[in-house]
Design a binder for these strands. Structure first.
Lengths: 115, 115
DNA sequence: GTAGGGTGTGGGGAAACCCCACAGTCAAGG
DNA sequence: CCTTGACTGTGGGGTTTCCCCACACCCTAC
């Protein structure tokens, strides 16, 4: 598969895909085309990209996701590990929510003052 | 006041202060020192920096904050304008909260699945 | 006069891409 | 056979909010 199709199927731009590849999140087989080299992807990278996006939505950076993907591929974590992991993330998300709630409250108070 | 004192009083690093200045958020009087020029700040920039930080916490980028500061200095907005403005921000914050809640729910479901 | 603190500029880096230009590849159509 | 159009590659710059050097100069105190 060429980069364009991966892009269409994942919604991630070509630049984004190349970026993921540079970051070591996905891999391609170089295919010679005249004097040039084109990237040839296996369809499975689509799944990988989707997993990456999920991990991102959990608040991980791409740099963190690389090791995670690799660890996962080598030996999928136990249920317990997974649960612990998810609970950690839950805590992170909740603290972000708490921060935003603080801001929300701040704004509401301001509005009260002004109206 | 020199940059170091501003930094100490605001918690913003010297680099950060120079950055704010480049962005046009604060100003300094150049003061000659031998063959060099040092920045000399008025104490009021401390307040300005604090206002900038507040605006940031409301979700504004530095680029947006410049015009806001200037507009505010020229003619402070009416109560109505202020309220409308704050309500907009409130909406933004709330939608961010909603996004995070979605993620929270997602993680909670995952945890249920696994445990 | 030298040490120690402050300050200046310039440059590189981080995050996760976007966007543009220029150029080569390839298949279809005339 | 050649052109056209869609696709791809690389290289470079830009975004945002600073951080972190390195090197050099300023000034004060001892």
């Amino acid at each position: 598969m060429q980069i364009g199709e991966i892009a269409r199927r994942t919604g991630l731009s070509k630049d984004g895909i190349r970026h993921y590849e540079e970051m070591g999140l996905i891999a391609s087989e170089p295919r010679a085309a005249g004097s040039r080299i084109y990237r040839e992807y296996e369809p499975s990278v689509i799944d990988t990209i989707e997993r990456v996006r999920q991990a991102q939505s959990l608040g991980f950076s791409l740099k963190e996701i690389g090791p995670i993907l690799r660890a996962y591929a080598k030996n999928p974590p136990s249920r317990e590990q997974t649960v612990r992991f998810l609970e950690d993330r839950l805590a992170v998300i909740r603290s972000k929510i708490a921060d935003l709630r603080g801001i929300e409250k701040f704004i509401r108070n301001k509005i009260k003052q002004y109206s």
